[in-house]
Design a binder for these strands. Structure first.
Ligand SMILES: [Zn+2]
Ligand SMILES: [Zn+2]
Ligand SMILES: [Zn+2]
Ligand SMILES: [Zn+2]
Lengths: 173, 173
DNA sequence: CACACGATGTTATGATGTTGCAAACGGAGC
DNA sequence: GCTCCGTTTGCAACATCATAACATCGTGTG
């Protein structure tokens, strides 16, 4: 099962979940002739450990604990590499990064971001991507890349609000 | 016609286009009991003048020419006000701002951003917004706000590339 | 006028991201 | 092993983006 899709099962074997992601990353990089160096692997691991959108400087702080010399370029280079290889995605509206559960296949992801608990889930719905590309082309626009980020309430947090949609729409202002 | 939708007609009366936008903004604010102060009006005018995504500090530099005391908070406060009233939109992946052609009605916009000339067009396709909300809800997610930004080539720039899609797809990597 | 409230001025600081150059590393070929 | 060369990393400085905190001003209301 793809560990990044959908919101987390209430309890999952997270240690295993991170290990699998790292294993997959190694496979992907080896097949592509890319070097998943120790630094890059560590940054990827930090991103997966959190299972939350992680900001660059938060990652930097954590990385410094195992690597005192780490500096901003250290982290941004690693992030660039991981993004280029589809191992993580950047959430533009948060300036943050999340692991991708399916780095083997290029895809346009759509992200569901909870305003309450900040959890993020990735949909990679080809129908959505196709529709956007088609709508764009109706405006004479040739689409190459998509950023789709949806803010709202995840299942758990919607539940906590009692499913009270009037209250929620008030909160939404 | 909505001046912000679609890419610009080859030549349009831009002076008129800006005037109309400011006029509409005044109407909207008056009806809502919001104060479109001189500073806010000037920032809105600068955004519309450019007809391009404008970054905060670019706007600040321009604003300083008519208002020496302007500082970062000056511009960000004006931008916050304009966004809150739907007069401009923020393009997250560019950290930039564009005018909205339809501030009277709340809407989820989808933005087409040209990688070549940096022009931006806004689609406000309710079908897209509805589909995203529906897809999200299928994942148990209650959607409140959407960010949709599509990168690619605008009609003019696609044309300049000779409509050569093989070359473009190569460039797209 | 007195007051309240929103808007602006001002300084400083925090947060995010990049450039440029030198040194170290690592695989390919000899 | 050794050289060569492209990639990766170290490091310092810089560039860009955004907010905090608090004082002051302006405007409308009673
Ligand atoms: Zn996990
Ligand atoms: Zn949540
Ligand atoms: Zn709009
Ligand atoms: Zn263009």
């Amino acid at each position: 099962m793809d560990p990044a899709s959908g919101f987390l099962p209430a309890k999952h074997n997270h240690r295993r979940c991170v290990e699998d992601a790292l294993k997959t990353a190694e496979d992907v990089c080896r097949r592509r002739g890319q070097r998943l160096t120790e630094q890059r692997r560590q940054v990827l691991e930090l991103v997966w450990q959190a299972h939350m959108p992680m900001r660059a400087y938060d990652l930097l702080d954590k990385l410094k604990k195992v690597h005192r010399a780490a500096a901003p370029p250290t982290i941004y280079r690693a992030l660039d590499f991981l993004i280029a290889n589809g191992l993580i995605h950047r959430i533009e509206s948060l300036n943050a990064f999340v692991g991708c559960g399916d780095p083997e296949h290029a895809h346009a992801g759509q992200f569901l971001v909870c305003q309450d608990c900040h959890a993020v889930a990735e949909m990679a719905d080809p129908g959505v991507a196709t529709l956007l590309k088609k709508k764009a082309s109706q405006h004479g626009f040739f689409a190459l890349r998509q950023t789709v980020e949806i803010f709202g309430l995840c299942p758990a947090c919607a539940e906590n609000h009692g499913g009270d949609h009037t209250a929620m729409s008030a909160a939404a202002k």
